[in-house]
Nucleic acid binder design. Structure first.
Length: 566
RNA sequence: UGCCCGAUAGUAUAAUGGUAGUACGACAGAUUUUGGUUCUGUUUGUCGAGGUUCGAAUCCUCGUCGGGCAACCA
């Protein structure tokens, strides 16, 4: 008997959570007993890197299996040897794991080449497939157009025996590439172009990343995918909208072969504002040098966002929130940023780092003195650990945190005004020192000794709190600040080349920032919030003598908004 | 102008013939030793026209708009 608690939880959950259309189908299938449990698959072609569009599919396929107690196979759709490489297989496996999912079986469409060949022979025997000697051009010509019926090939009515013989000889390598194909005999007048005698096999004398030179004929996607699903007893085969017209063919092969009836369901692929998510376009960004590589932190690839500092938790949460539907969508990238911030806020260690230093001197702080102050690592954590932050007479604050003639609502440091230095004291600006050119070289302040953080008896209230770093103790680092790669909301729908809309300022490098000492102990596994600056993580290009941090995402900033209004 | 898919606030997503709700965004306020976080409030929506019905976002009809389909790619 189930624990009463879990029943309650389930009741509440099902009341709150609404089902997407695929979940509805699955629940119905489970309820009617059509399936006892479900099997899904994630079927990438190993010809490129995964991006966050794939993440949506991964979360869907693996998430469904987890939700309903089934399992998911990772199946590489490797039916085209000329585009596929083992390097991609490895990166795909790594990315799926990083996202936090485990596949039941690691499989390859190429594992089924023998089965598929037998299936083809079977269809030939049934008079449902034939070898066509037409050229690619002739086949395209005879295909007709969406508004115009196709014409039957003159090879369409070859005998079963001849087809069997020819197909075997195709397999044996007797014919050159492109000289013959195996086609399904369906209907050249079908309004669905995919049913006009689609190609099942083509000749390619090419090396395959797994089967090497065993084969010189390779099945087309349509002749491989459904049957692969069927062999694996995939119950719910989920793909994107553009495969809708393929479904009739998917079903046709399964029906004629009389094999396990897998079913295909289609959802709308992810589109993100200010982003492109097509392999072709991402490849161009890499090849044309707009980014440093597939894992450039500005790239929407899994490896890119991972290097940027996004967490798998945030990505999964994002995929959860965007939902699943049978319609086109363009998700606002601010939702992604929200998910990333929400997670990072909970786990990041707070650190103080000054990017653009302005020297301040605490004139009433004892000469040669210094002290260690305590700073919370994470105020979101009730049991937060602490680190020690050295304080001294000479400090850096940000240039932007001081103004000689401040505008209204400026809460920061200005002559005569007081601010708190985070984790330290309240200070007052007494005067400024300028160099010959009139530029402020340092700001002279006094501090209120009894205002020390944690034991403040001053009774003073100030509006601003600044981050700072002791000049004598500061450690150096480089930070890389990223902005969106495109300057228009939907680069895919703009006129002309999408590359015309690239944001020229998507990367800003600050070679030397001043960080509090404990930043020197930064770890790759940890996430940081540089106070008031954003979330950061260590970049892989960091070395022993040079730390490099990527800005994952900024903090929300009400002040910039305020300024824009003015 | 053949076939297929779709249309709910700015964006995304619920409501499955019975009060149009949620999240993000935006705006306003409270709290705050991060102009962060948190909390509260406000704003804005059923593509159009008919029909069925006591009652339609939901069902039907006709439009409109968007997307897809003519690779020996997946």
């Amino acid at each position: 008997m189930p624990h009463p608690h879990s029943i309650l939880t389930f009741a509440i959950m099902s009341e709150i959570k609404s089902l997407n259309f695929i979940e509805e189908v699955i629940e119905a299938d489970l309820q009617t007993g059509k399936y006892k449990s479900i099997v899904t698959r994630f079927p990438p072609e190993p010809n490129g890197y995964l991006h966050i569009g794939h993440a949506k599919s991964i979360c869907l396929n693996f998430g469904l299996a987890l939700e309903y107690g089934g399992y998911t196979n990772l199946r590489f759709d490797d039916t085209n040897p000329v585009t596929e490489e083992t390097e991609y297989v490895d990166s795909i496996k790594e990315d799926v794991k990083w996202l936090g999912f485990e596949w039941k079986n690691e499989l390859y469409a190429s594992d089924y080449f023998d089965n598929l060949y037998q299936f083809a022979v079977e269809l030939i025997r049934k008079g449902l497939a034939y070898v066509d000697d037409s050229t690619a051009e002739e086949i395209a010509e005879m295909k007709g157009t969406p508004t115009e019926a196709g014409k039957e090939s003159s090879f369409r009515n070859r005998s079963v025996e001849e087809n069997l013989d020819l197909f075997q000889r195709m397999k044996n390598g007797e014919y050159p590439d492109g000289s013959r194909t195996l086609r399904a005999k369906i209907d050249m007048t079908s309004p669905n172009m995919h049913l006009r005698d689609p190609l099942m096999y083509r000749i390619k004398h090419a090396h395959h990343h797994r089967t090497a030179n065993t084969w010189c004929i390779y099945p087309m996607y349509d002749f491989a995918h459904g049957q692969s699903d069927s062999i694996e007893k995939v119950t719910h085969s989920i793909c994107t909208l553009e495969f809708i017209p393929h479904r009739a063919l998917y079903d046709w092969f399964i029906e004629k072969l009389d094999i396990f009836p897998s079913h295909q369901y289609e959802f709308g692929r992810l589109n993100l504002t200010y982003t492109v998510l097509s392999k072709r376009k991402l490849l161009q960004l890499v090849n044309d040098g707009y980014v440093s590589g597939w894992d450039d932190p500005r790239m929407p690839t899994i490896s890119g966002v991972k290097r940027r500092g996004f967490t798998a938790t945030a990505l999964r949460d994002f995929c959860d929130r965007i939902g699943v539907q049978k319609r086109e969508n363009l998700i606002d990238v601010s939702l992604l940023e929200f998910c990333v911030r929400e997670h990072l806020n909970k786990i990041s260690l707070r650190r103080m780092v000054v990017f653009d230093p302005l020297k301040i001197v605490i004139t009433n702080y004892p000469l040669m003195n210094e002290e260690m102050l305590r700073g919370e690592d994470n105020p979101e954590d009730a049991n937060s650990t602490h680190r020690e932050v050295p304080f001294g007479r000479e400090l850096y604050i940000e240039q932007e945190d001081f103004m000689e003639n401040p505008p209204k609502k400026y809460f920061r440091l200005s002559p005569g005004n007081m601010v708190r230095l985070k984790n330290a004291y309240i200070i007052r600006c007494e005067s400024v020192i300028k160099d010959d050119s009139g530029k402020i070289s340092e700001v002279l302040c006094t501090y209120i000794p009894e205002s020390k953080s944690g034991s403040d008896t001053s009774g003073l209230k100030v509006q601003g709190t600044l981050h700072w770093v002791s000049i004598a103790h500061a450690v150096s680092a480089e930070v890389r600040l990223y902005d969106r790669l495109f300057r228009v909301e939907d680069p895919n729908s703009e006129e002309g080349d999408f590359k015309n809309y690239i944001n020229p300022d998507s990367l800003q490098v600050v070679r030397n920032v001043y960080a509090e000492p404990c930043v020197a102990n930064a770890k790759f596994s940890e996430r940081y919030q540089f106070l008031r600056k954003g979330y950061f993580c260590l970049d892989k290009e960091s070395s022993e003598d040079k730390m490099i941090f990527n800005r994952t995402v900024t903090l929300k900033d009400a002040w910039v908004k305020e300024q824009k209004k003015g």
